[in-house]
């Protein structure tokens, strides 16, 4: 059954997007991405270190994958915009995850700055994927500003607590007509499946995979869970509770009284 996700003109088969941060070695990144055939992979943009010759991360990302550059490090819209433009100069093709965080305690994204950055970058032709604190009206503003999808957090970055923002994300899925991709905080494959069952278009996982003892196995688990959750969402039938029979009709009995 065809169920391809199409975003910004690109067909995406694997709805598990993978972040490449926090891995112990780049070679593991390569194994993970190749094993699960990752379609969308996020990287960051950083200053080169002249003292240690860094191998280019791109050598470890399958050529067929879509690169999404994260503006992490940006504390304001202006900084995020600068990083995005630099990423294009670096050879990126414009897929940008806007991450604007000036909160070092919880790492919660600043929705207001994110909306500003989205507006500017969308106009310049970037494919903008804003990372946000779940809020229905901010999600709508992001789509109005030109975002191609919206990425609400499941729980704070690195916390691995699952989708604690479930109610709010469900509302966004119900009301916003754009792909909703839960990003951050997912700790186990079951949580990724939960997101997909709710109707998410995809999920982005980084820490849970990078810090697992066996990263490739964990990535496989997540990849399969995403597929399972998506199937359940598409197949959703009637899981309704049975109706309780009513011996009397306290509310509508009056209709039969004469």
């Amino acid at each position: 059954m065809k169920d391809t996700l199409i975003i910004a003109g690109r067909a995406i088969k694997n709805r598990l997007f993978v972040g490449t941060g926090k891995f112990p070695r780049k070679s593991i990144v390569k194994d993970v991405l190749e094993t699960i055939k990752a379609d969308v992979v996020t990287v960051s943009l950083r200053r080169v270190d002249l003292d240690s010759q860094d191998e280019n991360i791109l050598e470890f990302v399958p050529k067929s994958s879509q690169l999404m550059v994260n503006t992490s490090g940006a504390r304001t819209a202006e900084e995020a915009i600068r990083i995005a433009r630099l990423s294009k100069a670096c050879g990126g093709d414009g897929w940008i995850k806007i991450e604007v965080i000036s909160d070092s305690k919880y790492l919660l994204p600043d929705n207001e700055e994110t909306i500003k950055a989205t507006e500017v970058l969308a106009k310049e032709g970037f494919k903008v994927f804003p990372y946000m604190t779940p809020d229905l009206y901010d999600a709508k503003r992001l789509v109005d500003a030109g975002a191609v999808a919206v990425m609400p957090l499941g729980s704070p970055i690195g916390s691995n607590r699952g989708i604690k923002t479930k109610e709010l994300v469900q509302i966004i899925i119900n009301e916003v007509k754009a792909p909703i991709i839960v990003d951050a905080g997912l700790g186990m494959p079951s949580e990724a499946a939960e997101c997909m069952e709710m109707g998410c278009a995809a999920v982005l996982v980084n820490t849970a995979i990078a810090t697992a003892k066996n990263q490739v196995l964990m990535a496989e688990g997540f990849s399969e869970a995403v597929k399972a959750g998506r199937k359940a969402f598409l197949a959703k039938g009637n899981q309704a509770e049975q109706i309780k029979a009513h011996a009397s009709s306290p509310l509508t009995g009056f209709l039969h009284e004469k």
Binding site: G19, S44, R46, R47, N56
Partner: peptide, 26 residues
Amino acid sequence: IPRKDWERVELKEHDVIDIVMFMMGG
């Protein structure tokens, strides 16, 4: 500065230069 223009930029004292590349992150 786009790559094709690097040749034309003549460096001066106190110039501020940032060179970046893609790295692990996400």
